[in-house]
C-alpha cells in the first residue's frame, strides 16, 4: 500500500528522465541525493548504452529488411512477390501454418483441460515434456523426422510399401512445424487455467450443464485472450520456422519451399532484393504479431485483476 503510494507520488526514477533531472537539480542545492536513483550522468550513460545496444542488435536489423527490400523501388519489390515461386512459397507457408495452428490449438485445449482441471501424479513431468520441443535445436527437430520417415528411416519399409511420401513433402513439413510449435498454445493456457481453478466448472455442472457445454460456455470464455495469444505466437513461429523445415523439405522450388526457405534460395542466388522482399512480408507479420501481442497482454492484465 505504502510502497504503491510512493511510486504513485513519483520518485525521480518513475517520474521521467527530464523531470528526474529537474528533480535532482532541486536536490542539488540541498546537496543530498535520493536513495533510489543514480547521478544524472550515470542515468544518461546507461540509457544511451541500452538504446545503442537495442538499436544495433534489433532496431537496425529490422530497418535493414525493409530498406533492402525497397532498394530498387516498388516495382522490383512487387515483382519479387508475385513471381510464381514466391506465390507458391506463400501458399505453402499459409497451408502449413493453418494445419499446425489448428493441431496445436486442439492439443493445447485438451492438454490444458487434463492438466489444469485434475490432480494426478507426474503432472510437472508432463508439463516439462510438453515444453520439451522448445529446448530442441530446430535442426535436430527436423532430423528426428528424417530418422523416422526418411529413405533410411525406421518406417521406411512401410512407407515405401504403401507409397506414402512424408519427408521432402508436405506431411514432413507440417510434422516438423507442429513439433517446433508444439508447446505454444498449451503453455499459455495451462498456468492460467490452473490459476482459475475448478469452482466455475463445478458450479456449471452442479447446475446441470454437460461437460462439453461447461467447456464451451464457462471455460473457453475465461481463457479466450490467452488462447488467442498462444495462437498468435504459434502462428508466427509456424510461418517463420526455418531449421526444422529446411531439413525435411528437400527444397523443391515451387513445391516444398516455404517462405523462409525461398528467402534462403534467393539469397544464395544473390537475388537480394527479391530475398528481402519476401523477408519483409515475414517481418511485417512479426510486427503485426507484436502489436497484437501488446494489445492482448493489456487485455490479459485487465482480466487478471
Amino acid at each position: 500500500m505504502n510502497a504503491l503510494d510512493h511510486t504513485a507520488h513519483g520518485h525521480g526514477a518513475s517520474e521521467g528522465l527530464p523531470s528526474a533531472l529537474e528533480q535532482s537539480h532541486a536536490y542539488a542545492h540541498h546537496g543530498g541525493r535520493p536513495a533510489r536513483t543514480e547521478p544524472p550522468a550515470v542515468r544518461i550513460a546507461l540509457t544511451v548504452i541500452a538504446l545503442a545496444f537495442i538499436g544495433l542488435f534489433i532496431g537496425l536489423p529490422l530497418i535493414t529488411v525493409f530498406y533492402e527490400a525497397l532498394k530498387r523501388g516498388w516495382a522490383a519489390y512487387v515483382a519479387a512477390l508475385i513471381e510464381p515461386d514466391a506465390l507458391a512459397a506463400i501458399r505453402l507457408t499459409l497451408i502449413v501454418a493453418a494445419i499446425s495452428v489448428v493441431a496445436n490449438l486442439i492439443f493445447g485445449l485438451v492438454a490444458a483441460w487434463a492438466i489444469a482441471k485434475f490432480e494426478f501424479p507426474g503432472k510437472s513431468l508432463l508439463i516439462t515434456l510438453i515444453d520439451l520441443p522448445f529446448s530442441v535445436s530446430p535442426v535436430v527437430a527436423g532430423l528426428i523426422y528424417v530418422l523416422l520417415f526418411g529413405a533410411q528411416g525406421l518406417f521406411a519399409a512401410y512407407l515405401q510399401a504403401w507409397d506414402i511420401k512424408i519427408i521432402f513433402a508436405l506431411p514432413g513439413i507440417v510434422l516438423a512445424t507442429i513439433f517446433v510449435t508444439f508447446p505454444f498454445v498449451a503453455r499459455e493456457l495451462i498456468p492460467l487455467m490452473q490459476e482459475q481453478g475448478t469452482s466455475e466448472e463445478e458450479a456449471a455442472i452442479s447446475l446441470g450443464a454437460s461437460g462439453l457445454s461447461t467447456f464451451f460456455r464457462v471455460t473457453l470464455p475465461n481463457v479466450k485472450w490467452a488462447l488467442l495469444y498462444g495462437v498468435l505466437l504459434c502462428n508466427a513461429r509456424a510461418m517463420g520456422e526455418f531449421g526444422a523445415v529446411s531439413v525435411v523439405s528437400g527444397h523443391v522450388r515451387g513445391l516444398t519451399n516455404t517462405m523462409p526457405l525461398h528467402i534462403e534460395i534467393l539469397y544464395n542466388e544473390y537475388q537480394f532484393v527479391a530475398s528481402f522482399a519476401v523477408a519483409s512480408l515475414l517481418a511485417l507479420l512479426a510486427l503485426v504479431t507484436l502489436i497484437a501481442k501488446t494489445i492482448l497482454e493489456h487485455r490479459l492484465a485487465e482480466e487478471d485483476r
Binding site: A13, S14, E15, G16, L17, P18, S19, A20, R43, L46, T47, L51, I54, I58, G59, P61, L62, T64, V65, E68, P138, L233, A236, M239, G240, E241, F242, G243, M259, P260, L261, I263, E264, Y267, S275, F276, A279, L282, A283, L285, A286, L287, T289, L290, I291, K293, T294
Partner: peptide, 27 residues
C-alpha cells in the same frame, strides 16, 4: 528510467522472438 518512445523500445525487445530466424539472418 523514463525516456521518449519507451513503450516502443520495450516492444522491440520481443522482435527476436517473433522475427523468423532466416529473416534475421539475412538482415
Amino acid at each position: 528510467y523514463e525516456f521518449p518512445f519507451k513503450k516502443g523500445v520495450d516492444a522491440l525487445i520481443d522482435i527476436p522472438f517473433a522475427l523468423p530466424t532466416a529473416v534475421a539472418g539475412i538482415a
